[in-house]
Amino acid sequence: MPKSQVRKKKVYTPPTDVRPSQTAATSKPSPIWLPIAAVSLIVFGIGWLVVYYLSETLYPVAAWGYWNLAVGFGAMVSSLILLSRWR
């Protein structure tokens, strides 16, 4: 039985309009305060919620009621926003 021909594969070259721009590779690194602020906000938010639950809603601010949850979770969400900008 005759052997089939082997096809030669072409070398793939990506299209020029899809290549990532060179400006993204040459951008500056993040400032040193950014990860420090993000970690501080995470610790602050967790600490706020822990104090709120352990004090049976008397502390940090009793008059705010359940808005204390918004403060704790808001601090953690803002830290995630900061971390999304970290390079």
Rank of each mutant, 00 (worst) to 15 (best):
Y12W: 10
Y12R: 07
T13G: 06
P14H: 04
P15W: 08
T16P: 08
D17H: 13
D17K: 07
V18Y: 05
V18M: 03
V18R: 05
V18S: 02
R19V: 14
P20F: 04
P20W: 03
S21L: 09
Q22Y: 12
Q22K: 14
A24S: 13
A25K: 09
A25W: 10
T26W: 12
S27H: 11
S27A: 15
K28D: 14
K28W: 12
K28R: 14
P29L: 07
P29A: 06
P29R: 08
P29F: 00
S30F: 01
S30N: 05
S30Y: 02
P31R: 04
P31E: 09
I32H: 11
W33G: 03
W33T: 08
L34V: 04
L34I: 03
I36C: 04
I36W: 06
A37E: 06
A37M: 03
A37H: 01
A37I: 07
A37D: 01
A38C: 03
V39A: 12
V39Q: 08
V39W: 10
V39M: 10
L41E: 02
L41K: 00
I42R: 01
I42P: 00
I42H: 07
V43S: 07
V43G: 04
F44R: 00
F44P: 05
G45D: 04
I46R: 07
I46E: 06
I46L: 12
I46H: 08
G47A: 09
G47V: 07
G47Q: 02
G47D: 04
V50C: 04
V50N: 03
V51E: 10
V51W: 09
V51I: 15
Y52A: 01
Y52E: 07
Y53E: 12
Y53A: 12
Y53P: 06
S55C: 05
E56V: 15
E56W: 15
E56H: 15
T57M: 13
L58P: 03
L58S: 14
L58K: 15
Y59G: 08
V61I: 14
V61M: 08
A62E: 11
A62S: 10
A63M: 12
A63P: 07
A63C: 10
A63N: 12
A63E: 13
W64S: 09
G65C: 06
W67D: 11
W67F: 13
W67I: 11
N68S: 08
N68Y: 04
N68K: 05
N68L: 06
